[in-house]
Nucleic acid binder design. Sequence first.
DNA 1: AATGTTGGCGCG
DNA 2: AAAGCGCGCCAACATT
Length: 558
Amino acid sequence: MRVAVVAEQGEGGWLAEMPANGPGHGVFVRCDDLAEAVAERERSGDIRWVWPDTREVYPCLLRAGVRVARCHDVALVEGLLLSREGRGSDLASLAGAWARMRGTAAPPAVAAAAVTATGQQSLFDPPDPLFPDPRAALTALVSVHADQVRRIAADEHPQRFGLLAAAESAGALAAAEMAFHGLPWREDIHDAILTGLLGPRPVPGLRPARLAALAEAIREAFGGRAVNPDSPAQLLRALAADGVRLPSTRSHVLRGADHPAVPLLLDYKELARLHAAHGWSWLEEWVTAGRFRPEYVVGGVVSGRWATHGGGALQIPRVLRRAVVADPGWVLVVADAAQLEPRVLAALAGDRALAAAAGTGDLYESLASAFGGDRAKAKLALLSAMYGGAGGDAGQLLAVLRRRFPLAAGYVEAAARAGEEGRVVRSRLGRTCPPPSQAWRGITAQADDPESGDDRAGRWLRARGRFTRNFVVQASAADWALVLIAELRRRLADGEHGPQLVFFQHDEVIVHCPLEAADGLAQVVAEVAQEAGRLVFGPTAVRFPVTTSLVACYADAA
DNA sequence: AATGTTGGCGCG
DNA sequence: AAAGCGCGCCAACATT
């Protein structure tokens, strides 16, 4: 049973029952307290809630203490469908889909941005301004949903695409719940780390003591010349004045240079970045009451990986993981998929030799024999195949890979070819990469003139080849991870006092869990990982091992 | 003064 | 040792 939901301004809303697989709907029912109505229905049975946008509705439900098992997020599903149909995602909203169905003008992109801009929202945001009243929005919702169900069924692999739509929607639920629970974050520990590395917190605008001292030492190393170490241009000029000419001030470039300022600069850059990106201002802005609450953007990356908006949740520096500590009586269950992308490639390509290697704990180790017993070479060969690398030994190793694992090599090379030819490629579950831009078509349309030595068209061609080559693997890995999150969420007991998903980063998940409920959770994660493999890839010899640690502190995870 | 771009680096 | 893919965010710098 599916139930369409539209929230009113205030606490009320409208509901309509719908069949899962076709058009039509029951009577429109108004309720004064939408959260209560949803909770009651949720208890009564197996419902998939159909709503315009999880980000607008679900946080309000969570605040009211209501958790739902399943939903169909019309905005996210529309995004998946539009990219499959080769269209931009600017119509990926209920209003946009409704306008497209009726052939009317596209609405301005609004709702979601408005929520983040103000940072606050009323209990329920008004439905999209395109709709004069909630009944009109509900009418649109029911129609757009039926249209989406039809388009999913029309996919070349409707089962897989249906799973993708369900998993993307479940991801939206998980993301909202993670933001609601928050990642446990000890402000005192964070502050102690900063103070230990940088010195006491300075008045805003000034450098902390340690950075100030380094800046002064750098000035002296340049013979007293005033240099702002934050300015790459000034650094390059100062180095050149001392006879050291560098193409950039990147760390690895600096490391190879011979100048007394180099070690100081390397220290300065590392600490300055910590201060700027995750210093005291970050702590003040993003951590409240012992919780870091990033704003996840489900499907925010073309490959289906999540992005975040604000807080940089997917770039938490390793040194700060010390500050992520479970509450007293609770534990962090940190689960990390091992060597996910090469395993995904093995499953995608149906390469039996590679799948056999991926049926073990350490994929690279079991591949080593094919590369003269050298694990590092096996790893480099796989990474080069997936990323399109060609430097160093990569060419030779790729030749070995091609000979020993022709299906796997052929899979990524076909994807690269498709990209270079301007075609699109899809993940295992059917997420579609964007088509090339007009600029790309223009530049690659005319072949390079070999006389001029200008290789612009070739470079753009190869760049898109690398993108599509990587897309099929990265996006299919994201399919797997999304299904994992959806399955894991389903298996965890809900509620305030049970295990809570609190963090998700591409191939890694953290569950904050009461000690007494942690027993067997590692086993659950392992089972869910295999289940995700089966759901996404069907029967396969490939294993998806997960390294799971039960720790008080994130920094102590394996 | 406000907005956009670049260089650099954090994470997977 | 770095590179090949995907991101977000900062300060500096460029442009309006």
